[in-house]
Amino acid sequence: MTSKRPKSIRRRRLPVVEPEARPRLGLRQLGIDTTDWDYVVALAGNPNTGKSTVFNALTGLRQHVGNWPGKTVARAEGGFEFEGDKYKLVDLPGTYSLLSASTDEEIARDFILFGRPDCTIIVADATVLERNLNLALQILEITDKAVICLNLMDEARRKGIRVNHKSLARDLGVPVVPTVARTGHGMDDLLRAAAGVASGGIRTQPHRISARGEAARSVDELARLLESAYPTLPNSRWVAMRLLEGDRRVEEAVRDGELADLVEEQSRAPEPAAHH
């Protein structure tokens, strides 16, 4: 098993020839064809949060790829158009966390970290918000470009749970859109927020985890070290946490320069202009 791994990685790291493909290097490495799309949006969330319903509501049931044999269970893709731009939507596996390094979690984590989608929609279940925030906070450590889709608002109301999405948006530092994906309620707002984040029209200031105790000191020290090596690294604290936990994939990315590539790619890529 281990003998095969380096081979596939090497294959994936073949240099890409066309220079204009560079800003999309990460996504192309993950097998996403970006040629016909203006933006790539990832869909993440806990299991049982109605993620696939959101997926279907956004893509209008077109181009849905089912989770069925022969197809990759890991990733469904679809597309939609919004105000003249074409968006590709990638459905990531539902996970509770990104820390346990199960196969599903690795797929989701790799996509958000190395794929650098233009926006990540985090679907959260309004009835079990606290548990869902665990994943949301972890994703916000990795990427600034995120929107929270606060789904199942009707179920929450039915159970007498009221969620103040404005307070949530203030605390998380990213747009929070209450939705009922089953009926399509709130989907337009979600699209607008996702488009705003993807195009750079909406600036986000995501919440950072306030680590406690000795862990905090180690994270801070390593993050400073990382920042001195990669001044433009946006998620140095997260990378530091992963290194302290001994995450093989992130260690590899640091060692063989993949992380440096990503940072460079990001600083070189022109900020996608607000829509023409």
Binding site: L129, L133, R162, V163, N164, S167, L168, D171, I209, A211
Partner: peptide
Amino acid sequence: QIVESIYADAQAIAERAVRRGK
């Protein structure tokens, strides 16, 4: 410690945002 920190934040944020009817 990391997971505890994340959940502590999650709890604080959720407490501010969620009102639970009896």
